[in-house]
C-alpha cells in the first residue's frame, strides 16, 4: 500500500527504513551468522529491534531501558507501541510537553514489528483483537455512566477534550477509533491513568467505546452544537450573533426615523 498521506517526515522515514534494512541485510550476510529461529514472530522481533535501534533508541536507550529523554519500554506491551506509533505520537518530532497525534510515520507492518520487539522485552498489555473492540452488543447506557464517571473530567462530557495542568491536555476523542481508545485505557499514554481490567472490565471497556461512538455521531436534537464547548461558546454567540443582529436592526429602525 502506497503512503497516501505525505507527511514531510515520510520521505525521511522511507529512506531511513530502506537504508536500515539494507544495512541490516548486509550485516546478516557478511557476518554469516547462524540462521534465525524459523518462527515468523522471531524475524518480526528482529525487524522490530532493528527499527527500534534506528528510530527509537536515541531516546528510549539501545536496550529500551530508557534514558533522560524517554521512559523505559520494558513491560509497556505491544498495545502501548501500537497506540503511540499508530497514532503518530511517536516518534516524537522534538522535545515537547506532550506528544501530538499526527499521521503515522511507520507502515502497519513496521508498527507490528516494533510492537513485537517491545512485547518481547517484558510482559505487557497486548494489542486488542477485533473481537475485543466489537461494540455491536455493548451496553450504551452503562458506557455513558462509566464515561461520565471516569473519562469526562478530562475529556469533557461530549469527548471534546480539555485542558490539564501546565500546558498538557486531554485530547478530543471525535476521531479516535475503537482500538485506539481501548489501547489508551489499558496503557495510560501521556497523562492518562491506566484503567486495568480490574478497574474496568473488558466488557465495560466495550461499553465506554460504544458510548464514545455515539458521541462521535454528534447528533444534535437542539440544532448546531457550537463545538460542544459548553456555556462559553454560547455566551460568545449571544453577544456577537444575537446582540449583533438586534443592534443592526435597532440601527436600521433608528435610521428610518430621520
Amino acid at each position: 500500500m502506497a503512503i497516501s498521506r505525505r507527511h514531510p517526515a515520510a520521505l525521511f522515514a522511507v529512506l531511513f527504513v530502506a537504508l536500515g534494512t539494507t544495512g541490516a541485510a548486509y550485516a546478516a550476510v557478511s557476518t554469516g551468522t547462524a540462521p534465525q529461529a524459523a518462527a515468523t514472530s522471531s524475524t518480526q522481533v528482529d525487524e522490530g529491534k532493528q527499527l527500534f535501534l534506528e528510530g527509537c533508541s536515541s531516546c528510549h536507550g539501545v536496550a529500551a531501558q530508557g534514558s533522560s529523554d524517554g521512559p523505559s519500554l520494558i513491560g509497556v506491551g505491544a498495545a502501548a507501541v501500537d497506540f503511540q506509533v499508530g497514532s503518530g505520537r511517536m516518534p516524537l518530532a522534538g522535545p515537547a510537553i506532550q506528544a501530538v497525534d499526527k499521521p503515522p510515520v511507520y507502515t502497519e507492518e513496521e508498527i507490528a514489528s516494533l510492537a513485537a520487539y517491545v512485547a518481547s522485552l517484558g510482559a505487557g498489555p497486548a494489542i486488542p483483537s477485533d473481537e475485543m473492540v466489537d461494540t455491536s452488543n455493548a451496553d450504551l447506557v452503562l458506557g455513558g455512566e462509566l464515561f461520565r464517571t471516569n473519562c469526562s473530567q478530562c475529556h469533557n462530557v461530549a469527548g471534546r477534550g480539555g485542558a490539564l495542568s501546565n500546558g498538557r491536555w486531554a485530547p478530543n476523542l471525535m476521531a479516535a477509533d475503537p482500538k485506539e481508545i481501548y489501547e489508551a485505557m489499558i496503557t495510560g499514554p501521556q497523562n492518562m491513568p491506566v484503567f486495568s481490567d480490574k478497574t474496568i472490565t473488558p466488557e465495560e471497556k466495550k461499553d465506554i467505546i460504544r458510548y464514545i461512538e455515539e458521541l462521535q455521531k454528534s447528533e444534535n436534537p437542539g440544532g448546531a452544537d457550537l463545538g460542544r464547548f459548553g456555556p462559553v461558546t454560547e455566551g460568545v454567540f449571544i453577544f456577537i450573533v444575537g446582540l449583533g443582529i438586534l443592534i443592526v436592526i435597532s440601527v436600521w429602525i433608528g435610521a428610518k426615523a430621520r
Binding site: G144, E145, R148, T149, S152, Q153, C154, H155, N156, V157, A158, R160, G161, G162, A163, A170, L215, N220, P221, G222, G223, A224, D225, L226, R228, F229, G230, P231, V232, E234, F237
Partner: peptide, 20 residues
C-alpha cells in the same frame, strides 16, 4: 442553535465532573 444539551451531561452525582 443548541443551548445547554443537558442530556449529554447526565444526572448530577457529586462523584462526577466534566472538563469545560
Amino acid at each position: 442553535v443548541a443551548i445547554n444539551p443537558i442530556w449529554l451531561y447526565g444526572p448530577y452525582t457529586p462523584s462526577q465532573v466534566t472538563a469545560g
